[in-house]
Computed example of a mutant assay.
Amino acid sequence: MSLVNAGVVVLDCAEPEKLAMFYKELLQARETDVTANLVQIRAADRLRLAFRRDANATPPSWPRPENSLQAHLDFLVEDLDAAERRVVELGGRPVEAKDAPGPYEERGCSDPAGHTFTLRRIPQAGPKQG
């Protein structure tokens, strides 16, 4: 038996109920624990996220250095365009980063409270080229 069985990523925010709803809808998750200051959700793939009330929470400023990332989440998706549209429908927004590298196989976004995350295309298994 392992000493630590599972972890939870916790995001501080002013309104945990609203932020939990954003991620609950985005990940098609369910609430597992709700208290006055914490809402926890679990996605179908067992990912657990929690949202803790902090009246003084300030959004990260990434890509500007002054408040940096604080936390960063990556979500694997098959269709970047559809996933980005869903983020916007739920109240999130795309984050434009200067000098984004590569062939845009990922997109930066932020949730309604300003926490950034990345939508990353699931690598397609295909025949090897060359």
Rank of each mutant, 00 (worst) to 15 (best):
V4R: 05
V4T: 08
V4H: 08
N5V: 12
A6T: 14
A6L: 08
G7C: 10
G7M: 13
V8Q: 14
V9P: 03
D12C: 11
C13G: 03
C13W: 00
A14I: 08
A14G: 11
P16S: 09
E17G: 00
E17L: 01
K18V: 04
K18R: 09
L19H: 01
A20H: 00
A20I: 01
M21Q: 12
M21S: 11
E25P: 07
E25Y: 02
E25H: 08
L26H: 04
L26E: 06
L26I: 05
L26A: 06
L26M: 07
L27A: 05
L27F: 04
L27D: 02
A29C: 07
A29T: 04
R30C: 06
E31I: 04
T32W: 07
T32N: 11
V34Q: 09
V34H: 09
T35L: 05
A36R: 08
A36D: 15
N37Y: 05
V39A: 03
Q40T: 12
R42G: 05
R42H: 08
A43M: 05
A43N: 06
A43E: 06
D45S: 04
L49P: 02
L49I: 06
A50V: 04
F51L: 00
R53Y: 13
A55E: 13
A55C: 07
N56L: 08
A57T: 06
W62M: 15
P63C: 13
P63G: 13
R64C: 03
P65A: 02
P65I: 02
E66L: 10
E66K: 11
E66R: 07
N67K: 12
S68L: 09
L69V: 14
Q70G: 05
A71K: 04
L73E: 04
L73D: 01
D74V: 03
D74C: 07
F75D: 05
V77P: 05
E78Q: 14
D79H: 12
D79L: 12
D81V: 10
D81T: 12
A82S: 15
A82C: 13
A83F: 02
A83T: 01
A83I: 00
A83P: 00
R85T: 15
R85S: 14
R85D: 15
R86L: 03
R86H: 02
V87P: 00
E89R: 01
L90Q: 03
L90F: 04
L90A: 04
G91S: 00
R93A: 15
R93C: 10
P94W: 10
P94V: 12
P94H: 10
E96F: 08
E96H: 14
A97S: 10
K98I: 13
D99R: 13
D99P: 07
A100N: 08
A100C: 10
A100M: 09
G102E: 14
P103D: 13
P103W: 09
P103F: 10
E105D: 13
E105L: 13
E105V: 08
E105T: 14
R107I: 12
R107C: 15
G108F: 15
C109H: 12
C109E: 11
D111Y: 01
P112L: 03
P112H: 03
A113W: 02
H115D: 02
H115A: 06
T116I: 14
T118S: 15
R120E: 13
I122L: 12
P123F: 07
P123R: 07
A125W: 08
K128L: 11
K128R: 10
K128Q: 11
Q129T: 12
Q129G: 07
